[in-house]
């Protein structure tokens, strides 16, 4: 698992090795960028948000108490950034300008499929992402962490500072809510 090297990279970065910070970014950038994308749904905004998250990591790395907990710490920090940015953008009406037809919310398509298949796949993915985005913030958060970021219940429990049973029940409610939003499509 590439993430197992994170504590060593954190230690090296704390000792002044800036290349270690670059490797940490490279290691986590896909996850953090997609987490940001799950909140703001727009690529440039997600890039800016992900960059701000890593800038905060750079500046606040000394606040991390245990290097082995870097992943959970990073996600806590990232979630705070995402929540704040989401609220800020929502107040500005940023999301009201986006629609299901907005090409900016598209996905990377897998290669090898016919255009028709890819079009259908793209539309489906867009619908699912829109449905996730329309969930209540707490529901969306737990779906993003478990089903898209593929974190374990233990990790989510630590990130959200909730008992594991609560995480599971929240996830179940979020999935049921998502099912109801996608009912017409299923």
């Amino acid at each position: 698992m590439p993430y197992q090297e994170a504590p060593e990279l954190v230690r090296a970065f704390r000792q002044g090795d800036h290349q270690a910070f670059n490797r940490l970014v490279t290691l986590y950038q896909r996850k953090i960028y997609n987490l940001a994308l799950g909140y703001v749904k727009q690529e440039d905004e997600a890039k800016d948000l992900a960059q701000d998250i890593f800038v905060t990591v750079y500046r606040q790395i000394d606040k991390l108490k245990e290097e082995s907990k870097f992943g959970a710490w990073l996600y806590q920090l990232a979630l705070n950034h995402c929540r704040n940015r989401y609220q800020k953008l929502r107040r500005r009406g940023f999301f009201s300008n986006q629609s299901l037809d907005d090409p900016e919310t598209g996905l990377n398509l897998s290669s090898g499929a016919t255009p028709e298949k890819e079009y259908e796949r793209e539309n489906t993915a867009r619908l699912v992402r829109e449905a996730i985005a329309s969930l209540a913030p707490a529901e969306k958060e737990v779906i993003l962490l478990r089903d898209l970021q593929e974190l374990s219940y233990e990790e989510i429990s630590e990130i959200l500072d909730l008992p594991m049973g609560t995480v599971k029940s929240k996830l179940n409610r979020a999935r049921l809510a998502l099912k109801n939003r996608l009912k017409h499509y299923l």
Binding site: N22, V25, T26, Q29, R30, K31, Y33, N34, L37, E43, K47, A50, Q51, L107, N108, S110, A125, V128, R129, I132, I143, D147, L148, L178
Partner: peptide, 14 residues
């Protein structure tokens, strides 16, 4: 949900 693919981060992120 599980079929959703993650998107590659932009090259100029770092």
């Amino acid at each position: 949900v599980h079929s959703l693919e993650t998107q590659a981060p932009p090259a100029d992120l770092l």
